[in-house]
Every structure is written in structure tokens, then in C-alpha cells.
Amino acid sequence: MSLLDVRNLTTRIATSRGVMNVVEDVSFTVQQGECFGIVGESGSGKSMTCRSILGLLSKSGSATGAAWFEGQDLLTLKSDALQQIRGRQIAMIVQDAASALNPVVRIGTQIAEAMMQHGLVSSKAEARQRSLKLMSKVGIPATESRIDDYPHQFSGGMCQRVVIAAALSCSPKLIIADEPTTALDVTIQDQILRLLVALQAEFGMSLILVTHDMGVVAQTCQRVAVMYGGELVEMADTASLFRTPRHPYTMGLLNCVPHLDRDVGTARLRPIPGAPPDLMNPLAGCRFHPRCPLANDACKSTRPPLREVAAGHFSRCLRQDVLGKDIWNAESARA
């Protein structure tokens, strides 16, 4: 049985200029102990999907569909019931760790806060002991001397470790990490990703890793969903998604990110032409069709369903028959 089962999640946000269709009919499951990646560019709806699940949308947003977690639909829960689940069973790690921490509260207190809140510790002394343990678990050196420090005394990487320690404090079943390493340097990113994977294995948690970086998911996740313009366009286990992508957008993305290990010679990258879609005025048909080299008339009018194209491999593309390795090569001449 899956730990989280999201079905037909659709999120709208009202703004002064109109309604944004930020998430459109997204369904996926996350298994126990699995690391599930959601990749997409800005505006693809990846962060909004997570926020909708956790009930963290602002007042102008509304989500429909269902998100089953442990037999309860998170989308229909009352806010105080949701409060009990957030932090306790599902924890969130955000991109900007430095601003996720309260600048005037000591590190130790912030790590212990959720434990105290959910009544997992009986005394302050116990909370402190558990905080110290968590700090060493996430690789913060000299825990005794640093537990009473303030966030500004920590580097960005160390702040992210503190945030992770706080997220772990209630032994959640699921951690949602929204671009947890985007603000970090590449050598620190490497450390933090390793830490997350190691902790996930150790505690048997599930992890949803949201990122724009194909490299990060390839190295971290077991299964990946690719989002574009609010829709989930492809979902598969990591190996088959990267080896045999079945959606032109995924193929284009893999084609246009620079590879470090290939000898590039004078070859040019093959960019995806055009710009990401406008969420105010969603296109009819496939949302990727204006940028897709395979688009035909059907793509412009029919919204493709998410179909299982191979075992466990889902794709939202009508042109499965003509998908080939070099669909983007002819395109490069134009771009």
C-alpha cells in the first residue's frame, strides 16, 4: 500500500489579473521508504503540488481532488487535524533555510519546537538531549557549543542541516523537500543530498524531492515525475525515465542540459525553443505543443491522457508511435 496517494489534484489561484491554473489533474503515489522526485521548471506547478497537499495554499488558492495519507484525505481535513499531521507525520524542508529559521530564536529551541508542540517529549531537558542527538545525526559538529547559537552564526549549508534536524525531530513518515539544495554551493549540495538519502534509508521514511535539476533527481530518487505547465507529463522509475524518456519535453530537457562527462567538442546544445507556458491562459490540447517538434493537429486540440506506455512508465503524449531518440536534432537547426 502506498503511503501517499494523490488523485486528480487540481489547484487554482485567484489573482487580481485572473485565475492561474497552477496544478492540473495531477495523480501520483509515493511508496513507503521511497524517494520520489518531482522535476520541473519555474511555474511547472511542482511546489504548488506540495503546498496543496500540505494545505499551505494562501487564501486565494483552492485545491480539488484527493490526497490520501494513512487513510485520511488531506484535502478535506480540518485545519487543526491537518496541523496534527504537519510536522508530526509529514515534515517540509524549504529552499531558503536561512529564512525558514527564526533569527531571534536559538537553534536548539527551534529543533525542539515541533517535539514540544506535538507532546513527544516530557521535559525541556529531554528535548535538549534529543536536539543534541539530532544535530550530530545531521552532521553539525561541536553540537554542545552550537546548540545555543542563533541562525546567523550558521552558514547556509549548516542552516539547511538545522532545518533537516527540525524536520526529523518527530520521526515523520514523509518528508517533502522543496528545492532543498538550490541555494547551496555544489559541494555543499552534494553533502546535503547524501545526508537526506542516508537519513531516509536509516529511518525508513519516504521523501518527496522537488527540484528543477535533472542531475539531482537522477542521483537521489527511485521514481521521478516530470511536470510542465501544471501537468504531470511523465512518470517512471529513474533508470527508465533517463534511459528511455517517453515524452518530448523530458527528452528535450535531457538534451539541453549540459553534460559534464561527455566530450563536447564544438557541438552546440539543442535548446527547447520558445518559452514556458502562460498559466493564466492554458492552451487547448497538449500544453507543450507550441514547443514540440512532433506536434500535429491532434496535439493542438486533444488533451493527451496520462497513459502507461511501459510497465510503471506513464506519459502524457499522443505521439508515442513516432517518439524517437533524435526528435530534437532536426529542431536544433531552427533554434
Binding site: 487554482r12 485567484a14 485572473g18 488558492g61
Partner: peptide, 14 residues
């Protein structure tokens, strides 16, 4: 659903 979500923004604008 869409029109519901749209209303508050319109009202405040008015």
C-alpha cells in the same frame, strides 16, 4: 469552481 475562486478578487477591485 473557477468562478467561485474568482469572486473575492473582483469584489475587492469593485
Amino acid at each position: 469552481m473557477t468562478s467561485l475562486a474568482h469572486k473575492p478578487a473582483q469584489q475587492s477591485r469593485l
